[in-house]
Write a protein that binds this DNA or RNA. Structure first.
Lengths: 299, 299
DNA sequence: TCCATTCTCTGACTCTAGTCAGATAATCTG
DNA sequence: CAGATTATCTGACTAGAGTCAGAGAATGGA
């Protein structure tokens, strides 16, 4: 990370906070305080639990409560206990609330328009492309990787989604019980580990590492949610597993995969894996890969 | 401006305000309120007039005064009347103020670093490049063009800078009195007009249009400050003059230029001007251009 | 010289945004 | 069923950010 990079980022944050920040206030913070507007937005068309709102916006419970009272007074929302659990309260937009949210929506469009308006067609296209790139990479930078127990709800969520996807994509279908790793529970220390990738707290990907005694470690159950693809999450998962395997003193990494998973196969190649002869009799595998582990790539 | 462009911009502002905005608060708003920090930053190493600070930050005079008192109490700045005009007060950083500003500076670097940290080398390079592009184009979008009297201080500033530059770049030097337009005062209605481009209120470029009765309008005195080049300001000035000439019912636009101004010549070509035979005897001109005016390009 | 103007400051406000310490009600656990 | 836990609410605060109406000093112009 060199000084000119830092300098560019600083210029960027300065320009953006000045230009976008100021306009943001100007367009969105007009007749409604920003806190209420954010809440109104986050409630969404279909309603939300108060608890979730608090989590999503990272706000104090008392504060949210007060904001909701204010929105309620203005007739924009209704707050009611959830029938199944009357401690939890659910917020819904009223007709007026929906209308207010729609104007916020329109303001957002106006803001976007005002940023583009002074530019000519070529500049606009470039700005939009650059913004999409910044958006994508900043989003990628907020993805966190954590080792969790394979039984953790987030891990289970990813595994279920993974199995469903395999079921759809393999020509033979997929039944985890017939695979060589029927039980993901094996992917916990000391026999392995399991990583979950999260974006804004939501699980969006996973990868497991099997650490058999006396045999090379194997990558298993790697998956990234469709909406999170293109962020480099899979590559980060690979790098993290490689680093962890190295920490365990291992010097080679293995994996097997199905011919239907073309994107994954391309990733393994580009990440430095070499195709090798079958080293197990996984019924769903068509390709086997191996990579010698060095120190984790210094950055 | 289509819907997917708007959508990309909206995603961008959302991601950026969430990620950059939050970190900004976290890193910069620590021991000092944001208002004071901004002020401290804007004072700069060499001191500033209070009036200028107010203008730059767009703050109420009472508010700035209060912020300065607070910084003064903390021993970070000294405020003194300016000897020439004792109404105006000038703020200077003390040693402690300079130190505080340096820590803000370091925090800014840390913020930038934290944005880049989770990414790998390739992603970093891409993010930085995209940020530089966004920065450049958002800056370009904040440039304003206004018709002013050629005698306006901002116009005079640009003309002086323009003449100085020509003096340096023409092999023969340049003396405005020997040119065909000795007096820029002719570039005011009804015989012409004069545009000034400004960025954050500072003049960064200009262009004049001569509207002689019975002859095609001519572009004169077009200049963009070196630090503002690459923002498409010259192109915008051309487009604006073209539109104004069209409003005056004119259907052709002319200009002459010196062979030393290669970038300008390239711009004229790419903007649709055709080189023509000399239509005047401007002593400093080597090339003469003409363009038929249509309706201003619709965007 | 006097009056208008410019620049800054002070006092008295307002509104957001948010924190913190309980109180209360519903639900879960043993 | 008692006690712990969870989800929400209320009251009492604080700090930041800014507005507005003058007051007062210095300066410029007729």
């Amino acid at each position: 990370m060199d000084a000119t990079q830092i300098d560019h980022v600083r210029r960027f944050t300065r320009t953006v906070t000045e230009r976008v920040g100021v306009l943001h206030e100007h367009y969105l913070g007009r007749e409604r305080p920003v806190g209420e507007a954010r809440l109104l937005w986050e409630i969404g068309e279909r309603g939300q639990d108060v608890r979730r709102l608090r989590e999503r916006l990272g706000l104090d419970s008392g504060y949210v409560s007060r904001l909701l009272r204010s929105l309620e007074r203005d007739g924009l929302v209704t707050v009611e206990p959830r029938p199944q659990d009357r401690r939890v309260r659910t917020v819904k937009l009223t007709e007026a609330g929906r209308a207010e949210r729609a104007t916020l929506d329109r303001r957002s469009d106006e803001l976007a328009g005002s940023l583009l308006a002074p530019l000519n067609t070529v500049q606009r296209a470039r700005l939009v492309a650059a913004m999409a790139e910044v958006d994508r990479l900043l989003t990628a930078a907020t993805v966190t990787l954590d080792a969790v127990d394979p039984g953790h709800p987030d891990a289970q969520h990813c595994l279920r989604a993974y199995f469903t996807e395999l079921q759809e994509r393999f020509e033979t279908g997929f039944d985890p019980a017939r695979s060589l790793l029927p039980n993901a529970g094996d992917l916990r220390p000391p026999h392995g580990l399991f990583l979950v990738a999260r974006l804004h707290g939501e699980p969006i990907g996973c990868a497991g590492l099997k650490l058999p005694a006396g045999a090379p470690p194997e990558i298993k159950r790697m998956w990234v949610a469709p909406h999170a693809r293109g962020l480099g999450v899979a590559r980060r998962l690979l790098a993290e597993l490689e680093a962890r395997a190295a920490e365990h003193g291992r010097d080679v990494l293995r994996l097997d995969t199905n011919k239907a998973l073309t994107a994954a196969i391309a990733l393994y190649h580009s990440y430095g894996f070499q195709e090798v002869a079958a080293f197990n009799d996984e019924p769903y595998a068509h390709h086997w890969f191996e990579k010698r582990i060095t120190r984790p790539p210094s950055e």
